[in-house]
Every structure is written in C-alpha cells, then in structure tokens.
Amino acid sequence: MIWTQCKLSEVATLIRGITFSKAEGVDSPEVGRVPVIRAGSIQKTLLVNDGQIWVPEEKVKPHQFIRKNDILMCTSSGSSDLVGKCAKSDANYDISFGAFCAGIRPDLKKVSPSYLYHFLNSPKFKNWTKKSSGANIKNIRASELAEFKIPLPPLDEQKRIAAILDKADAIRQKRKQAIELADEFLRSVFLNMFGDPVTNPKGWEICELKDCLDFLTSGSRGWAKYYTEEGSKFIRIQNVGKNKLLLNELAHVNAPVTREAERTRVKVNDVLLSITADLGRSAVVTEDLSGGYINQHLALLRVKTKKLEPQFLSALLSSKGALRQFKAKNKAAVKAGLNFDDIRTFEVYLPPLRTQAKYLSTYNATMKNLNSLRIQHDNAEAFFSSLSQKAFSGKL
C-alpha cells in the first residue's frame, strides 16, 4: 500500500480566526452581531456555547463560520501545552472563532476528517507544536502549519485507521468520565453530610482555622539545584488537585540537611493547600509521601485531630464555598495568592468528629474504586498511544 507525504494545505483549507478589538466585542447577544469562541472552548470536544464574545457581523466572512468536520486548533497561547490543541466540529454552526485559533477544513475527497483529527492529536504532531516559536507567547504560524507534512494512505485506509482509533478513544473517554463521576460523587456526599459551607444550613459551630492548627508553614524556593532522578519525594502544585493527589509528575530531590528543609518536610495527614495559583487545590499527605518536601506554591497545614479530620478539611478547602473565601482574601486577584493570615482567618465549620469520620470512611472506599479506575484509564491511554504510533507509521 502506497503512503504519501502531503502538506496540510494540500488536503485541507486553513482558515484564519477573527481579529477584533476589545471595544468591538460584547459579552451578550445583540442584533447585528455574531458569536465568536476562543481558544478555551477547544477541549476534548468543541464547546461552542462557552466563552462566547459577540462581534459585529461584518467582521465575519462566510467561510469563517464553523462547519461540520472543521478542526479547530489553538495556535497561540502563553502555555506550550495548549498550542496545537484540537477539537472537531460535529455540526454546522453560525459561530466563528478568534484570532488565537485556526480552522482546518478537510477536503473530503482527499482526507478523512477523523483521520486528520487523530493525526493532529498524535505524539508526532504534538512534538512539533512544542517547538513553536515565541518566548512568552507560544505560536504556530499559519505558514508553518500549511507546510506541515501529513502521512497519508489511500482514503479507504484512512477511514479504517480512523474507525479503530475512534473506538479506542471512546474507551479511554469512558474511563475518564467514570473518574469524573467518582469525583462528583464525593462532592455530593460532602454537601449532603455537611451542607453548603457558605450558608451552613445545619448550623455547625464556626471558628477560624487557626484554632484548629498545630502547625502552619509553606515551602521555600531554591530546590531546583537538588533535583535528582531518585531520592526524597518533592511535592509541587501540580501534584495537588481538588481534594486529591496527582502523582503522575512527582519529582525527587536530594534534600539538604538544614532547618529550612526540615520545616517543609511533610508527615502523614498533613493537609496541603495551593497558595499562589489555582486556589482551592488541596490534598492530604499519604503514607507513601511522608518525609517528602513541598515547594513554595504550597502551604502545609497540620491539624488538631481532636477538632478536624484532615480529609474533611481537605474537602472543605476544595469546595466552591471555600473558593469564594479565598477569592475575597486574594486582594490582588490571581497572582498575589494567600498569606498565612488569610489561612489562619479562614472560617471553617465544625461538625462532630464522628460525622467527619463517616465522610472519611466513604472517601476511603470511593478512593479504592477510583484508584482501580485510574489504573484502567492509564492502561487505556497507553493502549491508545501505542495504536496512534502504529497508525501513522503504517503498522496498524
């Protein structure tokens, strides 16, 4: 079977996004205006109803409306992880897209839209996007994208490959959805047991967090020189999610024997809290992380266990009600973060310990199932990645 290498511009039309000034965009529909989505709407699916800006209709040319099988790509962002991110449209929409995006409209006589979509999400293409130009803002130039060469078998073979990848992708997405449902279940359990932290409908006693802490500190800077392949675990902000640990990118350090290092050393049941970005991330230190260290973006809270169950506190700190408190305290908006006084004066409600313990029991049982789901998800991801590698090298 003959495979060819075709430039993207030979099998698809590249469409530039809409350029408009801040003054030209409004946040709600108006007669004579067209909705425009931005890069944030490019997720696993295309979120056409999220993040819309309405611009004068004369700004949008007919070919710039999103059509079925169009592939929308983020082509400019402050994050290299977002550049190259793609989503495929499942219908025609009277909606366009902004200048930080590009539309890729496949020629159906030459390329399968699903095949092209999977290739643009493949490791080969992702590796190329990571080399995109720009020191602070990462970009894919339209001219570079047009010249990028796509491995292309005959159309029937493209469709066969796309069908296999579609099925494998559906499996990994179902695994991901199951994990998300488990997370949502825990949030629902928390609200059912304890009520909304903002309104406190059950009338629990309220106090400031400082009354429930034995120790409070944050990580320090300067750990980069101690990074190593093995050694003590080093916990960074990306390892702390919404009431859970995320350990796929766990780092290691050869920690110095200093008071400063010892101060940031964690113990089992310490609660970790994000303090410089993504406020509302929290997690409880487990046995396998005990003795590790934290970086400057995390605070370490060691609770009085006669008042608070650590896992209850972590769930509380990750709640929407807690996020409202954090945002109110974060006077300089996103970048300033939280200081120790903000944490000490954070208001918590205090259900009876036996009630908190019931939540812990449910949490532990759910996490046991969740860990199994994550293993299945990781296996599905690895399987899909392997298929993708084979698919675009002619070995599938």
Rank of each mutant, 00 (worst) to 15 (best):
L186W: 06
L186C: 04
L186I: 01
R187W: 09
R187L: 11
R187Y: 10
R187M: 12
R187G: 08
S188G: 07
S188T: 05
V189G: 04
V189E: 15
V189L: 07
V189M: 09
V189D: 08
V189K: 10
V189P: 01
V189S: 10
F190P: 08
F190C: 08
L191W: 03
L191R: 10
L191A: 00
L191S: 02
N192H: 14
N192K: 14
N192W: 05
N192Y: 14
M193T: 05
M193C: 05
F194N: 03
G195F: 01
G195N: 06
G195V: 00
D196R: 05
P197T: 11
V198T: 13
V198F: 12
V198A: 15
V198Q: 15
V198L: 13
T199C: 06
T199R: 07
T199W: 02
T199S: 14
N200V: 07
N200E: 12
N200Y: 11
N200W: 11
P201D: 08
P201K: 08
P201M: 03
P201R: 01
K202I: 01
K202L: 11
K202F: 10
K202P: 05
G203E: 07
G203N: 04
G203I: 08
G203L: 07
W204C: 00
W204A: 00
W204M: 01
W204G: 00
W204P: 00
W204N: 02
E205M: 01
E205L: 04
E205T: 00
C207H: 09
C207N: 13
C207G: 08
E208C: 00
L209D: 03
L209A: 05
L209S: 04
K210Y: 14
K210S: 13
K210A: 12
K210Q: 13
K210N: 11
K210L: 10
D211H: 04
D211G: 05
D211P: 04
D211Q: 11
D211E: 11
D211L: 00
C212D: 09
C212N: 05
C212M: 04
C212V: 08
C212T: 02
C212K: 02
C212F: 06
C212P: 09
C212H: 06
L213N: 09
L213G: 08
L213P: 04
D214T: 10
D214F: 13
F215Q: 11
F215C: 02
F215G: 02
F215L: 02
F215H: 12
F215Y: 14
F215W: 11
